[in-house]
Design a protein around this nucleic acid. Structure first.
Length: 629
DNA sequence: CGTTCGTCGA
């Protein structure tokens, strides 16, 4: 065998030290292999080059090691060179090896190169197809992913669990999953945990929670990820109760919980306003104190449960903060009535933080609108494109219409609606309607209400409000018409409901529902309070013209508003030094707001009420919203 | 050689 000059090694790999320095083709292969396994990219590349010049072919295992080496270094150019060598050495029919190359291109995010290679491959097995499908699913090119699955089936390649768990990610937007689900069953793959969690997740994304639950319940041998999927499904669809129940079963059955579980559980606490449970979960979170997503969920929980001291503490202690952390904190401050602090935080974000996104700006505009900062809000709205490269969307317009409307600039608000680049939706008009309520503009209120009902014919509150306005103007025919439409469409107003957590129990107070065991005592106490408050200047506000309360609920029901009952119950059952926290489904009315302010003064209490839009911190007879909500 | 689950909004 002809000896060849040593070209590559300046120092031989340690395993070669005992060998002669004269190189043979087999020793060159040996060196190449060693460099590859040592992940020494530049020497491997030189060795590969030398072998090529001497017409020596390395084995496919070594090439696949070299691909791993390129991947580890992020060496795109070298990877492409390896690709060339593999093909010139006629390895392109070694599917194992070409699949490695395919995987490399996908990991480098070079989908075009991957597709080209895929098209040129003489043989494509299930791994080749799955690699491409997974690449397109990840890139959210759903159509391509689904199309590949069809082509694959047409070519007679049998998909496996890898294929389905990948392709399912590309199925949001699909009208139904029946066909796909039954082919999974046909291949007997539904019991695979990867497939099961992907199925649960996609059913959840399509809003088909019952189907998700069905897939979950058919599970025989479980897996934490499957549990996480179903808990996440309910948490994301605001069914915190069910999410927490499943979490309890998960623990009972002994499955380990991880960051993902806790994130969803915290989200459930957030949507149910369960501060006490959230505090308990916080203890478990400490085990994962470096997890950004989990910390964000914790931060959001404290903001949305109205505990800003805790939120501030978490925010200041987080090692890593991303745009979501900042957005949560800015919106959280604003919703809790600390608009100026929110804007200050935004200013420091611009200096020290990440680039704001669409949602961050929304929080900033919300802060301006709830603090009455017309000029500042308008400035951010006008310049958001220039300053942050974000085009104002429908939601931003909603905020700014709210801002103008609250400030009494109804004409400007209307003008802006007509100038919007995107079509106004029901939420846009609802912002204007809210302003009409505050500033008692009946004609414009009627107009906005009609626009809302065109876009959202199910909106019970708007029907009731419209009918109240007509009744107030004695337009009885119009009242009858609205009522008729409402009945015809089967729309019913959701009753006002307030919740309060006492001793880890949630107590619900629903308008005209007397099922609470202590309801008589609560009512008696409430009457006493009202009597006392009238003595210090409280005047029950019975003007419902621009409220969306049902007519028949008006006359005597003021004192039975669910939040008043919850407040009284809270005073009765929560110790004095603790904050009374209430969560309700409708926005607080002016009368209850006045009631809450006064009662914190005479009872020396701290009350936080969370409504669907923001938080009211009542203390010493004043509210953090400054009566501006 | 290819797979599943978690955070911010009017």
């Amino acid at each position: 065998m002809k000896a060849i000059t040593r070209l590559i090694c300046t120092a031989p790999p340690s395993c070669l030290l005992t060998r002669s320095y004269s190189l043979t083709p087999s020793s060159l292969i040996h060196d190449f292999t060693n460099f590859c396994f040592q992940r020494d990219l530049s020497k491997s590349m030189q060795a590969m080059d030398a072998m090529q010049r001497h017409g020596i072919r390395a084995d496919s295992i070594t090439y696949s090691e070299l691909i791993k080496c390129c991947l580890a270094r992020g060496a795109v150019r070298e990877g492409k060179l390896v690709h060339k060598h593999i093909f010139s050495n006629r390895y392109n029919s070694e599917t194992f090896l070409t699949n490695s190359l395919l995987g490399m291109y996908v990991k480098f995010n070079l989908l075009k190169e991957a597709q080209k290679l895929f098209d040129e491959m003489p043989e494509r097995n299930v791994v080749s197809w799955t690699t491409m499908i997974s690449a397109y699913s990840n890139a959210k090119l759903n159509d391509r992913a689904l199309k590949l699955l069809i082509l694959m089936l047409r070519e007679g390649v049998k998909p496996n669990m890898f294929t389905y768990s990948s392709v399912l990610r590309a199925c949001d937007g699909l009208s139904n999953l029946r066909q796909l689900h039954s082919s999974i069953m046909k291949y007997g793959l539904e019991s695979d945990t990867f497939v099961r969690s992907a199925l649960i997740d996609i059913y959840s994304k399509l809003g088909e929670l019952q189907n998700a639950l069905h897939v979950f319940h058919e599970m025989v041998t479980g897996d934490s990820v499957v549990w996480n999927s179903i808990i996440g499904a309910f948490a994301q669809h605001s069914d915190g109760d069910e999410a927490l129940n499943i979490y309890k079963s998960m623990k009972r059955e002994g499955f380990p919980t991880d960051q993902s579980t806790l994130t969803s559980v915290l989200r459930a606490c957030t949507s149910l306003s369960l501060l006490e449970l959230g505090l308990q979960i916080h203890v478990h979170v400490l085990k994962f104190n470096q997890d950004l997503i989990l910390n964000n969920a914790l931060l959001d929980m404290y903001c949305k449960c109205g505990s800003l001291e805790d939120a501030n503490f978490i925010f200041s202690r987080m090692v890593e903060k991303d745009v979501i952390s900042w957005s949560i904190m800015i919106a959280g401050l604003a919703q809790n009535g600390f608009s100026l602090e929110a804007l200050n935080l935004f200013k420091s974000m611009k200096v020290f933080g990440p680039k704001p996104n669409y949602i961050t700006i929304l929080g900033v505009l919300f802060a301006c609108s709830h603090a009455g900062l017309v000029n500042e809000g308008w400035y951010y709205f006008q310049s958001m494109k220039k300053l942050f490269g974000i085009d104002p969307g429908r939601e931003h317009y909603g905020c700014i219409i709210d801002l103008l409307g609250r400030a009494g600039k109804l004409d400007d608000a209307v003008k802006l609606i007509h100038e919007m680049k995107c079509e106004p939706d029901a939420v846009t008009w609802r912002a204007l309607l809210g302003a009409c309520r505050v500033h008692r503009n009946l004609d414009l209120a009627i107009y906005s209400a009609k626009q809302i009902l065109k876009l959202d014919p199910e909106d019970a509150g708007t029907y009731v409000l419209l009918s109240n306005i007509y009744a107030n103007s004695q337009r009885w025919e119009d009242v009858a018409e609205v009522r008729k439409t409402m009945r015809g469409r089967g729309v019913r107003k959701e009753p006002g409901c307030s919740w309060i957590e006492v001793n880890k129990q949630i107590h619900a107070f629903i308008l005209r529902d007397n099922s609470h065991p202590q309801i008589h005592e609560i009512n008696r106490k409430l009457s006493q309070f009202i009597h006392t408050l009238i003595g210090v200047g409280y005047v029950p506000d019975t003007n419902f013209v621009l409220q969306d309360l049902e007519g028949e609920q008006r006359a005597d029901s003021l004192q039975y508003h669910s939040e008043k009952l919850a407040i009284v119950f809270g005073i009765m059952s929560i110790s004095r030094e603790k904050t009374i926290r209430i969560w309700k489904n409708l926005r607080i009315c002016g009368d209850c707001h006045a009631f809450a302010k006064l009662i914190t003064k005479i009872e020396n209490r701290h009350i936080v009420i969370r409504d669907p839009v923001r938080y009211h911190h009542f203390k010493d007879g004043v509210c953090s919203c400054g009566d501006y909500w």
